[in-house]
């Protein structure tokens, strides 16, 4: 959140995570190159680079795809979400190096244009097993380029969250292209049970975690009011909400978060204005509800970002009868102040 854009929103955590990414990438490349030289010493430098960066990109893509469901299933993984963007850009750069060296090694030696050669060196587009797998990698790289190029906050705001999210959901299409690229490549060039097995396990893990997270989310979405009194819905008792934290509920098909802080209760929309992050999974820090994804903040009593910031979210009326909390399902306009319920 801010009144201007920063090139990179650095903070100590981000620097730490980026350092870990750099160390991880370095160690992976070192290990891969070391093992290849030991087991297959006749491998050329170009082939080594192509394989090292190709496998690195695939490994990073798997981590990127795992972070989302893992942080939904266990809040301990939430900090990884903060740095997913940098991980995604690193993954694209690794894929770019792999793609660029592949084109140089396989398609620049003849007289034809390298990109034309990429698309025409194998014309078996009607074959299932001999389909030109490099073309699939090319399309995956285009999608990853668009995602990396639009990873700055400027794009999120100016493309609109809907278009931005749609564009970034294309990662699953890119993943499908990458899987086919590797499977077909492995089948057509050097049949490798090892790479096919690793990739299959990766796919099963990603698919299972996404399914598990989706089932958990759908359970929340299916919540129905247990008790309704004059239009007010009973949600929980005061003790069920931890201090400086929230509980998430569904009212009128909208997710709301009820926060307990400073002996008060307030209800706001669960959806952060920045990237739709789950505010109810965040904490109250310095009197502000802080989004667990990127640290956007809102005052719980009025759903407004503290001045000079201008983001606003809907607020909801609450009432307390004995120890029971009731919410009025009709949300108020974004940024509407509501007197918190005193405990």
């Amino acid at each position: 959140m801010g009144l201007d854009y920063q090139t990179v929103l650095w903070n100590s955590h981000k620097k730490k995570y980026d350092l870990w990414i750099a160390i991880g990438v370095f160690l992976y490349l070192l290990t891969f190159i070391g093992i290849t030289i030991l087991t297959n010493p006749e491998t050329t430098a170009e082939t080594l680079i192509i394989r090292a960066f190709g496998t690195l990109a695939i490994a990073l893509l798997h981590i990127v795809l795992l972070i989302g469901p893992l942080s939904r299933l266990n809040s301990r993984f939430l900090p990884l979400l903060y740095n997913r963007r940098h991980l995604g850009v690193s993954m694209f750069l690794a894929a770019l190096i792999h793609g660029a060296f592949s084109i140089i090694q396989f398609h620049t030696l003849g007289n034809t244009n390298a990109f034309y050669a990429l698309f025409t060196s194998n014309l078996e587009y009607d074959s299932l097993t001999n389909f030109p797998f490099q073309v699939l990698g090319f399309f995956a790289l285009i999608i990853l380029f668009l995602m990396a190029a639009t990873s700055h906050d400027f794009w999120l705001k100016n493309l609109s969250p809907k278009i931005w999210k749609g564009l970034h959901m294309m990662v699953y299409v890119a993943y499908a292209f990458v899987l086919l690229h590797v499977f077909l490549g492995a089948l057509q060039q050097q049949p490798s049970l090892w790479s096919i097995s690793i990739l299959s396990i990766g796919f099963i893990v990603i698919a299972s975690l996404h399914l598990k997270a989706a089932l958990q989310e759908s359970k929340i979405d299916k919540q129905t009011a247990i008790k309704v009194e004059d239009g007010w819905e009973f949600v929980c008792t005061v003790d069920e909400i931890p201090e400086d934290r929230a509980k998430i509920f569904i009212v009128q098909k909208e997710r709301i978060a009820i926060f307990k802080y400073e002996n008060k209760l307030s209800a706001i929309s669960n959806v952060c204005k920045h990237q739709g992050g789950p505010l109810g999974e965040g904490k109250v820090i310095d009197g502000c509800v802080t989004c667990p994804w990127h640290g956007y903040q809102y005052l719980p009593a009025n759903g407004q970002s503290p001045p000079p910031f201008t983001e606003k979210i809907a607020t909801y009326r609450l009432k307390k009868i004995a120890n029971e909390i009731y919410v009025h399902p009709e949300g108020l306009a974004e940024g509407t102040a509501i007197e918190p319920i005193a405990l």
């Binding site: 201007d4 854009y5 090139t7 639009t150 700055h152 400027f154």
Partner: peptide, 20 residues
């Protein structure tokens, strides 16, 4: 908001502008 931001931010936007 770009007016308040450094020129390096606009530099970072160039690949996105080419693509979209």
């Amino acid at each position: 908001l770009i007016e308040e931001s450094k020129w390096t931010v606009r530099l970072l936007l160039i690949p996105g502008a080419i693509g979209l």
